[in-house]
Nucleic acid binder design. Structure first.
Length: 424
RNA sequence: GGAGAGUUGGCUGAGUGGUCGAAAGCGUCGCACUCGAAAUGCGAAGUGCUUGAGCAACGGUACCGAGGGUUCGAAUCCCUCACUCUCCUCCA
């Protein structure tokens, strides 16, 4: 959510930021809405002031037993009040219109985010690892993984497309990946392990910006709750409406949860394989920090995700997203893309974003500085550390062997119960 | 699912429909005492909005879970909803 005061103070900067995200200038329209709202509020407040004054006088008149005077004042207030209901209705409508307008606008990009309209404008920051040379033609996981227990047909019988049924060694490997990631983020990176609700209400979905604009991407339960599309929703909303003390910050939380996505807008994309599912596991990393710490925290968080890829020996590249390709709430985002030899491409496996105070305003999450009067909005960050399903794909494709088996990376062996390779 | 109790400022917790933005305590900040600190004493302070002539002060207005309603006037009465707690029922 944008701060209307910042727009008033510097409409040019607001429009310039929106332009970088592909929006036409909107400050004039928004400021006009703001002006009409405040003009109305000023009128209303004057009327209310007179009403309050008269009401007080009635109380005094009654106390003094001056009934005639009290009745006269009552009549006066009654006429004063005739205009109020209409004004209140109009005020509510104008306020809602302004808030809806602001809530539908994405965060503005940070100064060091490159220009660009789409993923073509993203900037590669670094590469790690050397893609393995194969003495055979590496296959896509969708072609050889079904023989290893990644079963799409069984899932389709009960659930349809974009679901998988993992069996035996494959299910074990996915579980091992989740455990490995969670252990490293909690033990090495200091994130607090959380187990969260997988369903949340409207306000929470609004807080992390899935609502109102992206409701079609979510699944909704029959009682009106939303299945989380990422644990960012449940972890970040842990502090909604809170006033934190400064010593509670930074707050770092992680959770291994299923994520549910309708993939409404991606018909036809990634229909083969385990890349784009309605349901997948992910280890999410959320930080709640002071404003001055959020830039450094983004670097720290991205590094925490990189270390998982490095620990598993998976080559990747680090991308700085351009203004046009960032998510709605982000002011700066790094994507990590893992090398998939079967597809001969880098594919997104982690996205780490600094949301600034954008979500905090929606959640009304503030903190108090020691010795300083008043509250400030916190900054929120989120990142995947990592998407488990896509990591499974990366393991399968990078560690595949000519005979269709897959060797298990050393780091996962302690979690595999004696399994050292997946065999058909 | 049934019955009941509750939701008040950073926290705990009072509050007969009419100076209640709200007692008190804790915590916070300032001052005094002290070499310094603790203890003690004194004092200060809620938040949002404000096209009120700009900033500050001051003033106006709103805010006692959320939203409606009654009333000249609502923290206080009524309705709806959310949440918390207790008991019963059901259940992994």
């Amino acid at each position: 959510m944008h701060d209307i005061r910042l727009i008033r103070e510097n409409p040019q900067a607001f429009d310039a930021g929106l332009a970088r995200r592909g929006f036409a200038p909107l400050s004039a329209e928004i400021l006009a809405m703001d002006a009409s709202l405040r003009a109305l509020q000023t009128d209303m407040q004057a009327a209310l002031a007179r009403r309050n004054e008269a009401s007080k006088a009635i109380g005094q008149a009654m106390a003094q037993g001056d009934r005639d005077r009290a009745e006269a004042l009552k009549a006066e207030v009654a006429t004063l009040k005739t205009a109020l209901p209409e004004q209140e209705t109009a005020e509510r409508a104008r306020l809602a219109a302004l808030q809806d307008r602001l809530a539908a606008l994405p965060n503005l990009p940070a100064a060091d985010v490159p220009d660009g309209e789409d993923e073509e404008g993203n900037v590669e920051i670094a590469r790690w690892g050397t893609p393995r040379g194969f003495d055979f033609a590496p296959q896509e996981h969708a072609d050889f993984a079904p023989a290893l227990g990644l079963d799409f047909e069984t899932a389709a019988k009960m659930s349809g497309a974009r679901f998988a049924f993992l069996k035996g060694q494959m299910a074990r490997l996915e579980r091992a990946l989740g455990q490995y990631m969670l252990d490293r983020q909690t033990i090495e990176q200091g994130y607090t392990e959380c187990a969260t609700p997988l369903m949340v209400r409207d306000e929470a979905a609004f807080g992390t910006t899935q609502l109102p604009k992206f409701r079609e991407d979510l699944f909704q339960t029959t009682d009106g709750r939303w299945l989380i599309s990422t644990a960012e929703m449940s972890l970040t909303n842990a502090v909604r409406e809170d006033i934190l003390s400064e010593e509670q910050l930074p707050m770092r939380m992680t959770a291994l949860t299923p994520c549910f996505r309708s993939e409404a807008g991606s018909a036809g994309r990634d229909t083969r394989g385990y890349i784009r599912q309605h349901q997948f596991w992910k280890v999410e990393l959320v930080s709640i920090v002071r404003p001055e710490d959020s830039d450094a925290e983004l670097e720290r968080k991205t590094r925490a995700a990189e270390l998982i890829l490095e620990g598993l020996g998976l080559p990747y590249r680090k991308m700085l997203l351009c203004a046009g390709d960032m998510g709605f709430a982000a002011r700066k985002t790094y994507d990590l893309e893992v090398w998939l030899p079967g597809q001969n491409a880098y594919r997104e496996i982690s996205s780490c974003s600094n949301c600034g105070d954008f979500q905090a305003r929606r959640m009304n999450t503030r903190f108090r500085r020691e010795g300083v009067k008043g509250n400030e909005f916190v900054h929120t960050l989120n990142g995947s550390g990592l998407a488990v399903g896509r990591t499974l794909v990366a393991i399968l494709e990078n560690y595949q062997q000519a005979d269709g088996s897959v060797t298990i990376p050393e780091a996962l062996l302690p979690y595999m119960g004696g399994i050292t390779e997946l065999t058909p």
